[in-house]
Nucleic acid binder design. Structure first.
Lengths: 143, 143
DNA sequence: GTAAAGTCTATAGATTTAGTAGACTATTGA
DNA sequence: TCAATAGTCTACTAAATCTATAGACTTTAC
């Protein structure tokens, strides 16, 4: 049930970018890497993947950097996890985005599948309905 | 967020044993392996792990096999997953059973952590409150 | 035209996963 | 008592995946 480092780093970076979004400031890989303690060359690949997925955009050259392509309240955590870590479902036969048969005789009456479907739905209820803005806001409310 | 084959096989086997529990029948590795399409030598290791964890027991020799040590309505899916796949939490800093600091400056105000804590709780709400008996019963109600 | 910044591809090391092999032990019953 | 059955235990391996690192390249601003 684990989130990979890749997914974790990507989410941390995205939340970081969401915080910088209101100042509409471009943020360099180096800055994110240092503040979030992420190996910069690894982060580079992750941000690139998020860019190719249409979540981030970037600007080259002096004063360039990354920024969120859409407002933070329209980018869900689920979307980011799917890009970086693949389907949310614990098991493929309950995935909405990457379904595959699991080989049990009848999926409709597979006890394991029914439970894992609940788990998948619970995970996606949270991650697809929590936006980067939510994550930022929750922290600000506490501190 | 994936469940390993090990975890999947273990859960399938446990549900199989739960179904056989009412007849108080011992079940051989070979039978489970064939019915659930699991490589028998791999399943062997999995069942042994569940035995060492106090979930199953076994009997040697002719007419031997595995059986649930406790009634199916007292064995949760979460317990089995933890034995075979480790903590339910997507990230260590929100694990109840295997906590580890994640290195963010302040855990109480880490946006990622707050969201992943919700995810962990959602997963464990389901898996720790669903027993093998529940899984069997749900299937029987449908068919 | 040079420095800053991202782009892209390759690769490497470590870890984990999934599975196989085989020798060993305990139990039953003929 | 001995042979067949069934689990135990340890080691190993092949493949996949994860977590990076390296370096050459492109674009942009000044």
């Amino acid at each position: 049930m684990k989130l990979s480092k890749r997914g974790e780093y990507g989410l941390r970076a995205a939340i970081h970018l969401a915080r910088c979004h209101k100042e509409s400031r471009l943020v360099q890989i180096k800055e994110i890497a240092e503040e979030q303690h992420i190996p910069p060359k690894y982060l580079e690949q992750i941000l690139l993947a998020l860019k190719n997925a249409g979540i981030l955009n970037s600007k080259l050259g002096v004063g360039g950097g990354y920024y969120l392509l859409r407002p933070p309240d329209t980018v869900s955590m689920g979307e980011i996890v799917r890009v970086l870590d693949g389907p949310l479902a614990p098991i493929r036969c309950v995935s909405q985005t990457a379904y595959e048969p699991c080989g049990c005789p009848d999926e409709e009456t597979c006890g394991l599948r029914l439970v894992m479907l609940d788990v998948r739905n619970a995970i996606s209820d949270i991650l697809d309905n929590t936006t980067l803005a939510d994550a930022v806001e929750r922290v600000e409310q506490i501190s």
